[in-house]
Design a protein around this nucleic acid. Structure first.
Length: 646
DNA sequence: CTAGGGTTAG
């Protein structure tokens, strides 16, 4: 191919010059309009131009047929571009394929912006095989062609293939651009990949592009390296909202709520207007930190925006996880648009707050409104059943998942079933269920069984379950502690000592129990046996007062949960200063009437603190809400929402 | 003609 013809085949505007203009060579220009209207081919081309730009698609396609039947090349390549857009907006894949055939026979595939548009069209229709084939047949490929394919692969989760294409394009001598990097970074799911890609972007001088940076930040956070993500953000503080959102969202999703909220404030101070995605991340940060007050402030912000489904779902989840079901329900009812996630959030939220029956009612409502439950919805439903002891219902939902909703039960569902049977004391059935599962039980399944063994005091089965966990996760500290607790409860002191020796040898240390609560703008943390709080004297006196009040109602310290082989008095002393008891006392000292005391915990609540909180809620006429890592306990009038079943 | 950020469970 000589230079001139290459110029003509790759440069669209000059390609147009090659088109057969059916005008007489000797047109004098005297009657140009007349000549044009008189020539039937020319007027066909003109109407094709008009139709491909304005539609309707069917007429434009008919014109295309006529052009074909007269063996003509059409007018300007631009017309085809418009026609492809028309196809896209009409969702007409067949017409798209028809255009593809036409362009091939007309010899237009070398015109890159046309072949790339075709590629893009196939991708957006989800026709990856057509796109692949076209890509393979292209006489020329540029960055856009390659990037279109890479992006398409990532959309359908073929990350490996995307990365292979990224390598091949460079072997072909094509340099990636910022579009390529912002796409390919989504395919990087190991830190090594991200590093390599980051280096590559630097080499091409593209690492300070905002699109590339937001993708880099996202990729680093996804691979767990939030420091690097933050570093990329800090290199240049731009006015690009998405870069802010990437870093805020990254922190929010990885449990660094403080950082996320700090950046959120920083962003507002810098004068940027938060968008829905920003607020969603801010809410998620509040959810993770159980910051009800802060979440309510974000809620106020949110009223200025037009309703957004994802944002409302995040709001719903925030209220559920902060233990404020009333506000969650109000907002749930207010939402005029609901999707599976809204329903699932509400169902799990009710279940985690001990309102299983209402969760099941919402599920009925969901089905009545024609929403289709998904995998996660069913986890919530089974969770509701297990935490309310609804064994029969649980079995029913578990068995019907497949036929009714076309959902294949996964390990999470099996886990819920083990929990359901185990909590209900049907330990033998639970073991049988585990052995009959289609797949190999994982550590979560055994841990669930171990928990049930603790509640129902089955020491030998507990030892077996713990053994299975330690096979899968050697040296898991939670398992060691739970097992030694179970031994201690059964007064098998030599086994306790053996466990503790093993833990010492392996360097396993118990995570200290912490409880925390917000008073005003401050967060107060209480650790069992730690008396360093500034108001400790007052807390001790208040604790004394509360214990004497509830002792009159029959409270006897329950030392079952004390690990050590101590005397009774020492045991009583050690549980008296559990963090949640100190927090309740502190909460009483600083309480506003009518407002519940809200306490968060990093470990699950012990039986004695549970009994304590129930009685205090009665004698003091106070609602106490304690959130442990799995669920909420709402104490009111001497009862708990969990029904003592947790 | 090709690109980036947000929601549900365990």
């Amino acid at each position: 191919m000589n230079r001139l013809s290459r110029h003509f085949t790759t440069n669209p505007s000059s390609r147009a010059l090659l088109l057969p203009r059916i005008l007489p060579n000797h047109s004098s220009g005297l009657f140009p309009n007349k000549i044009l209207t008189l020539n039937p081919n020319q007027s066909l081309i003109q109407s094709f131009t008009r139709l491909s730009l304005h539609g309707p698609l069917s007429d434009a396609m008919a014109a295309l047929e006529t052009i074909d039947s007269r063996c003509l090349h059409a007018a300007d390549p631009i017309d085809y571009l418009h026609l492809i857009k028309l196809c896209l907006s009409a969702g007409a894949a067949d017409a798209g394929r028809r255009i593809h055939r036409h362009l091939t026979s007309a010899g237009y595939l070398p015109v890159l912006f046309l072949s790339n548009s075709l590629l893009g069209m196939y991708v957006r229709f989800g026709l990856i095989d057509d796109a692949r084939q076209l890509f393979g047949n292209l006489p020329h490929r540029n960055v856009v062609s390659w990037t279109t394919m890479i992006s398409a692969f990532i959309d359908i989760e073929l990350g490996r293939e995307a990365l292979e294409f990224f390598v091949w394009m460079q072997r072909d001598g094509i340099r990636p651009n910022m579009f390529t990097f912002s796409s390919i970074l989504r395919a990087c799911d190991t830190l090594r990949d991200v590093w390599a890609m980051h280096c590559c972007a630097i080499k091409h001088g593209l690492d300070s592009d905002d699109f590339v940076r937001s993708s880099l930040i996202d990729a680093y956070f996804r691979c767990g390296d939030w420091e690097s993500g933050h570093l990329v953000f800090n290199e240049i503080i731009t006015g690009d909202l998405v870069v802010w959102n990437s870093v805020i969202g990254g922190f929010a999703q990885t449990g660094h709520g403080h950082e996320a909220l700090k950046l959120f404030r920083q962003m507002k101070r810098a004068g940027f207007l938060a968008k829905q995605a920003t607020l969603t991340s801010a809410l998620r940060a509040c959810t993770g930190m159980v910051f009800l007050e802060m979440g309510q402030q974000v809620h106020v912000h949110l009223l200025k925006y037009k309703p957004d489904l994802i944002l409302n779902n995040a709001l719903l989840d925030m209220y559920c996880k902060c233990g404020s079901l009333e506000q969650a329900e109000v907002n749930f009812e207010r939402m005029h648009e609901k999707d599976v996630i809204s329903w699932s959030t509400m169902i799990s939220g009710l279940a985690q707050n001990g309102r299983s029956l209402e969760a099941l009612r919402i599920f009925d409502l969901m089905k009545a409104e024609g929403a289709k439950p998904n995998y996660i919805t069913m986890v919530g439903i089974l969770f509701a059943c297990s935490h309310a002891g609804l064994v029969e219902d649980g079995w029913y939902y578990f068995r019907s998942m497949n036929q009714l909703f076309d959902i294949e039960p996964g390990s999470e569902h099996y886990g819920c079933m083990v929990d359901l049977l185990g909590r209900a004391g049907k330990l033998a059935e639970a073991v049988k269920f585990i052995h009959e599962m289609e797949f190999k039980p994982d550590a979560i399944i055994w841990r669930t069984l171990l928990g049930a063994c603790r509640v129902h005091k089955n020491v030998s089965l507990a030892a077996f379950a713990a053994q299975e966990i330690l096979k899968l996760e050697p040296g898991d500290e939670g398992t060691c502690i739970l097992l030694s607790n179970i031994y201690a409860d059964a007064k098998q002191w030599s086994d306790v000592e053996q466990m503790r020796k093993m833990m010492r040898d392996r360097g396993i240390r118990k995570e200290p129990g912490r409880s925390w609560m917000d008073v005003g703008k401050e967060t107060h943390v209480f650790i069992a046996g730690d008396f360093s709080h500034a108001q400790m004297e007052g807390i001790g006196r208040e604790l004394e007062r509360l214990i004497s009040r509830i002792s009159n109602m029959g409270y006897v310290p329950d030392t079952e949960f004390v690990l050590h082989d101590l005397g009774r008095e020492q045991k009583e002393e050690s549980i008296r200063y559990h963090g949640e008891k100190m927090a309740v006392a502190f909460g009483m000292m600083n309480s506003t009437s009518g407002k519940p005391i809200r306490i968060m915990k990093n470990l699950r609540i012990c039986g004695d603190c549970h009994a304590f909180a129930k009685l205090v809620s009665r004698t003091e006429g106070k609602v106490i809400v304690i959130r442990d890592p799995v669920r909420f306990h709402h104490f009111q009038d001497g009862a708990c929402s969990c029904g003592d079943y947790w």
